[in-house]
Design a protein around this nucleic acid. Sequence first.
DNA 1: TCACTGATACTCT
DNA 2: GAGTATCAGTGAA
Length: 216
Amino acid sequence: MNTLMDVKKVNDNFFAEDARIVAKKLLGRYLVRQYDGRVLIGRIVETESYIGSIDKACHAYGGKKTPKILPLYMQGGVSYIYSIYGMYYCFNTITGEEDDAQGVLIRAVEPVMGIEEMSINRFNKEFSELTSKELLNLTSGPSKLCIALKLDKNLNKHSLLSDELFIGEKENESYDFDIIECKRIGIDYAEEAKDFLWRYYIKGNKFISIKDKIDK
DNA sequence: TCACTGATACTCT
DNA sequence: GAGTATCAGTGAA
C-alpha cells in the first residue's frame, strides 16, 4: 500500500508557464504535505493567479521589490507564504521564469488524506467530533488550508518538489470537470485589475471558499 | 442565509 | 502609523 495513494510529483517544468495556465492546471491536482511521518493531502479545487507586470492586485505590481515579496521573483516551482491580518497565512506557488513576478494563490483544497490530523490542526478536535459545518470549513479558504496543512513562513521559498511539500498528480487520472472563471476575492483596491477573471475553481465542489453568482 | 465587525501582528512608509 | 490576497462570531431576518 503506497502511503501517498499513488500521487507522484509533477515535472519540474510544470510551473514554467504563465500563472493563468498553471492556475487552471493546478485544479484537480494534489497538495502534499509531510512532517513527523504524517502525510496530509488536499485536492486543489480553487486558485487565483497574480501577475506582477500587469496586475495592480499583485504584491509585486510595477516592479516593486521588498524582502517580503522576493519569492515572487524566483523561478517557478517554489512557495511564497506570507502572513496577513496578523493571524493568518496565504500559500502561493510561484510560476514562470526568474525575475518574472507571478504566482498562483491556492484558495481552497478538498481533504483527501490525513483528515484526522487536519482536524486537530484546525479545531484541536478529533475528526469524529466535528460538526458538518466544521468539516466543510477544514480547508475551504486560503488561510484555513494553511492551518490545516501546517503551512507557515518556515516553508516560505521552499521547493514545491520536495518531500515535505509538493504538488502531485495521479497517473491516468482524468481532469474532466467544469472550471468556473470569475473575479478574484478581497482586492477591491486594485482598480481595473479587480475585474480580471483570474479566479478559477471546480464547479460544484463543496470546499470552494466563496461561490460566484454565476454558479448558483 | 446574509451583513457586519473585532481580532491580531507583520511589513513597509 | 497605516494597511492587509482572512476568519469566526454575532445578530437580524
